[in-house]
Design a protein around this nucleic acid. Structure first.
Lengths: 201, 201
DNA sequence: TAGATTGTTAATCGATTAACAATC
DNA sequence: TAGATTGTTAATCGATTAACAATC
């Protein structure tokens, strides 16, 4: 398959949201309708859709169900992706509640924390393990992806351990830029940056 | 001031993180060091820095403190931005805990929920109001920005009310694409999209 | 048929990278 | 001085938009 850019992924995800939550009862949708909801150009929408190998019908538009399914294929929503959540605070709890994860193939296997009171407890059906057992459980489950929801002070320290244990993808909710080897990918989920992008652009 | 692109905002935010949490004890930093941490090109870093009107010293690099402060100016960290949080669940609670908001000029004034048990309570020093009082308090405080942390079913409904009350910026944590007038900006904080961008790119 | 909408190409726009002279 | 690093221009690359023929 052809390469897919970050921006295209973002737009396809938004198209999917529209088809799931806004226009889910319609049979057909036009590129102009999608474009207007997102305030982008309609020819860009058509180009994106043609990337997904979906054909439209002149005068009608695209079949909502077909388009939705093809986007799911392109974005691999049906491919299960196991993750660990490191840190078991409110953000971690919010992540376990995010019911849609299942639909998108993201499966939270367990949480980790160093707080004695949290260890052993269940949060929305997911067990909280002692953070000391991270290495053991990463190796046993072969999980390669974590959501990092820790205080900044220990973020780099735990990251080093995660890398040593074999983690390849770190979804980083801390305000730190993490030092990792070339083959490990970090996504900096920086809320300040998003906020400013909304305000300024 | 010249226009600033979304990508530039994102990089400047990351440079600021590096200067605050990774290299905060250094006097000088080179463009190559920053570039290597973020795995981007060093000439891009230099271009970004020159956008901030910071001059470097050949053979040494840039003064960490000066660069940090100039980035804060460009990104208006010292300009206070009041916001309301709509919904008072775990994600909302995590937002109130995000201590760094203060440093970046983001000030959560209050939270809103329709759950009787939450109304009137304090969460990390922020009061939870009845969601019925949103209109009254938006008008009184002239807040124009909200963080939307609601279940998808009521997202569009509450959005319509927010728009009627005069809200201009919606930081949307729900998986819905919201229908809003041209002069209202929505930022779709879609975690699935971010996750896929990390995995694929 | 007339009209609306797709599908696609070429043009434009913007962002990144390469290169290298200037500087300390 | 030699070497490292900045600052900046031109070249490249990629993404978006405009335009319009094809189609139902």
């Amino acid at each position: 398959m052809e390469a897919i850019s970050a921006k295209l992924i973002h737009r396809l995800t938004l198209y999917h949201c529209i088809l799931s939550y806004s226009l889910e009862k319609r049979e057909y949708v036009s590129s102009a309708e999608i474009a207007s909801l997102l305030k982008i150009d309609d020819s860009l929408v058509r180009k994106d859709i043609s990337f997904c190998n979906v054909q439209g019908l002149p005068k009608h538009g695209y079949k909502v169900l077909e388009l939705k399914q093809k986007i799911e294929n392109v974005l691999s929503f049906h491919y299960a992706k196991d993750v660990f959540v490191v840190g078991a605070g409110h953000l971690a709890t919010a992540l376990t509640q995010y019911s849609d994860f299942k639909d998108y193939g993201i499966n939270i296997l367990a949480l980790f924390d160093n707080n004695e009171e949290k260890i052993g407890k269940m949060i929305n059906g997911k067990r909280v393990f002692d953070i000391k057992r991270l290495d053991e459980l990463i190796k046993r489950t072969r999980v390669d992806t974590v959501f990092l929801t820790l205080p900044p002070q220990c973020a780099q320290d735990i990251t080093n351990k995660l890398v040593d244990s074999g983690i390849k993808y770190i979804f980083n909710f801390t305000p730190c830029v993490l030092r990792v080897p070339q083959d490990v990918k970090v996504r900096h989920e920086n809320i300040i940056s998003s906020f400013l992008q909304m305000k300024i652009s």
